[in-house]
């Protein structure tokens, strides 16, 4: 009797917190299907009829289609660039003995802890000189480099679990070190590569502040910027329904990825944090 009572007492906070997490997100989706009049009349309830007008309005009138496209490019290009840069370095740092190995590893890892805000001012002018300011490819490069330390860290720990004998026998068979890297190591660390890529992709899809600084014209806005813009406008236009619809558009890909890769994502983030 006493045991079951304490169980209920302990369960109550769990249930309350679960509601606190789910309800606002659910409510955002519901709001996306409501007319403005309904949002004002009954902000937290269900709509009478579900209509998709908010979505089409966001998509057509607020240029969400362009920003979805921009966000996709930044995400894909950024994630690929990160891999191209991180895989060879992670392999060298994990497997090749050379002077300065430890130092280089520490340098990359410590960059995870250093506040990057300071660097954003010079970076702004650097991008301007390189003609990469207000350019989604410039932003992709900045994103890719910003996720290098995390990616290198996770990849080295994955590569560390691959038995050395495999590389040695491949080298005996006459495979060059380049061949070992691309044909043996890369396929064998695919689990790590996928984990890193999902984490980076979510990061790039969500990122807001660097985009705010390094992008300026509306046609280059990523989704986060476009939503921020609509949100600031909504204070005057009261286009709350449109705002919710665009929030929903931003969050659906993340939910889908999370539904598929839930274990990998939570594991990858926990491990990244433990070292960081």
């Amino acid at each position: 009797m006493k045991k079951s009572l304490s169980r209920i007492v302990i369960r109550l906070p769990l249930i309350l917190w679960a509601i606190a997490v789910i309800y606002p997100i659910l409510w955002m989706f519901i709001g996306a299907f409501k007319s403005n009049a309904e949002i004002y009349a009954n902000p937290w309830g269900l709509p009478h009829v579900f209509n998709f007008q908010n979505f089409s309005q966001a998509w057509n009138e607020y240029n969400i289609d362009t920003s979805v496209f921009n966000s996709l490019i930044v995400t894909v290009v950024g994630a690929l660039l990160t891999l191209i840069m991180a895989i060879p370095t992670a392999y060298a740092l994990e497997r090749i003995v050379f002077k300065g190995n430890r130092f280089l590893f520490t340098l990359y890892i410590s960059a995870m802890m250093i506040p990057t805000v300071l660097g954003w001012i010079p970076l702004f002018f650097l991008l301007m000189q390189l003609n990469l300011l207000d350019n989604i490819f410039g932003l992709s490069i900045v994103y890719a480099v910003s996720q290098l330390p995390f990616s290198i860290f996770v990849l080295t720990s994955f590569m560390g679990t691959i038995p050395k004998a495999l590389e040695e026998s491949a080298a005996m068979d006459g495979l060059s070190p380049y061949g070992v890297l691309w044909k043996i190591i890369t396929p064998l660390s695919m689990t790590g590569i996928i984990t890193v890529t999902i984490m980076n992709a979510i990061q790039f899809w969500n990122e807001y502040f660097m985009a705010l600084i390094f992008l300026q014209s509306e046609e280059n806005y990523t989704l986060a910027l476009a939503i921020d813009y609509i949100s600031n406008e909504a204070e005057y236009t009261n286009a709350w329904g449109t705002l919710f619809a665009s929030l929903a558009i931003a969050i659906i890909p993340v939910i889908v990825l999370y539904a598929i890769f839930q274990r990998r994502i939570s594991k990858g983030m926990t491990e990244g944090a433990i070292k960081g």
Binding site: W17, A18, V21, I25, I202, W205, N206, E207, Y208, A224, I227, D228, L247, A250, I251, V254, I255, Y258, I265, S266, M269
Partner: peptide, 11 residues
Amino acid sequence: FFFPNIMSVVV
């Protein structure tokens, strides 16, 4: 409980 960790700060 973990899901908000991967939501965008903007959202």
